[in-house]
Structures are given as structure tokens and as C-alpha cells.
């Protein structure tokens, strides 16, 4: 395994069903190590310990939403430079622009194709982080 290859992914998603689908797709099909979080606060707590290569972040979540979570993650030294990809159903053009303005590498639309999710993330990783 190459040193700069994508291996550890933290997924922050309040919908447990989506969590389950994504986990299966990423772990079983993609071979990634996945840490699941249902809330922004949970992610802020787990992220420094988990040390993700990439964070997959939902936008609309109860409590702390995705953009706020991103902002907070950027404030943590351990996650300040970890690339973040939003995964959301709110994909109006202006919304996508907004996410990128916040510092997201890319945006994956919901519903996503679990069969291609891993390859999509690898592509993004290779484009921006290698």
C-alpha cells in the first residue's frame, strides 16, 4: 500500500441506513477503513483519534450541520488539513458552489452509486491529494 494512498475514511452521516450502505460499499467493495459518525460533535471527538485520510461529510444534520462541522474540523490541528468531500442531496448549483467555497474538495450527490463510490473517492483523492 502506498503511503499517500487513500485508506482511512471518516463518514459523518445522520441517516443510519445511508451509513450502512456506504460502509458496505467502502469497506467491502473499496477496502477502506471506515469510521462512522452520526453527528458533527461525534466527529469532532473521534476524528483526532481516528486520523482519517479523508472525511465524507453530510450537509444537513441535526444539531451541527455539515458546513459548521467542517469549520470546526478546520479548527482542530489534527483535522485542519484533512480533505473533506460533501455527500448531500442538496445539490443545487449555488449550493455546490457554496460547499466548495467552504473548502470541500468535491461534492458527491445523493443518491450515490455504492458500486462506484469507492472509485469516485479514489479519483478525487488522486486528483487533489497525490
Amino acid at each position: 500500500m502506498e503511503a499517500n494512498s487513500l485508506q482511512r475514511i471518516m463518514m459523518i452521516e445522520d441517516d443510519l441506513d445511508i451509513q450502512a450502505v456506504a460502509q458496505l460499499a467502502l469497506e467491502t467493495l473499496g477496502g477502506f477503513t471506515v469510521e462512522l459518525c452520526s453527528r458533527g460533535h461525534e466527529a469532532l471527538e473521534k476524528a483526532p483519534g481516528f486520523g482519517p485520510d479523508l472525511i465524507l461529510l453530510d450537509v444537513m444534520m441535526p444539531g451541527m450541520d455539515g458546513p459548521t462541522t467542517l469549520e470546526r474540523l478546520r479548527a482542530l490541528p489534527q483535522t485542519a488539513r484533512v480533505p473533506v468531500v460533501f455527500m448531500t442531496a442538496r445539490v443545487m448549483p449555488h449550493e455546490i458552489d457554496h460547499y466548495k467555497t467552504l473548502g470541500a474538495l468535491d461534492v458527491i450527490r445523493k443518491p450515490f452509486d455504492p458500486m462506484t463510490l469507492s472509485s469516485t473517492l479514489n479519483t478525487i483523492w488522486n486528483q487533489h491529494c497525490v
Binding site: 441506513d17 450502505v21 467491502t28 442531496a89 445539490v91 443545487m92 443518491p111 452509486d113 455504492p114
Partner: peptide, 22 residues
């Protein structure tokens, strides 16, 4: 859009994985 897509994400994702034999 969000409210429709969210459940659809689970449904279609699950079905895709099952259909693919995952």
C-alpha cells in the same frame, strides 16, 4: 429534493449492492 433523495439513497444503494452480489 433532499427529503426524497435521502431515503432513495438508502434504497437504491442497498439494492445496488445486493444486485451486485456485495
Amino acid at each position: 429534493s433532499h427529503e426524497l433523495r435521502t431515503p432513495l439513497t438508502s434504497i437504491s444503494g442497498s439494492l445496488a449492492l445486493m444486485a451486485a452480489g456485495a
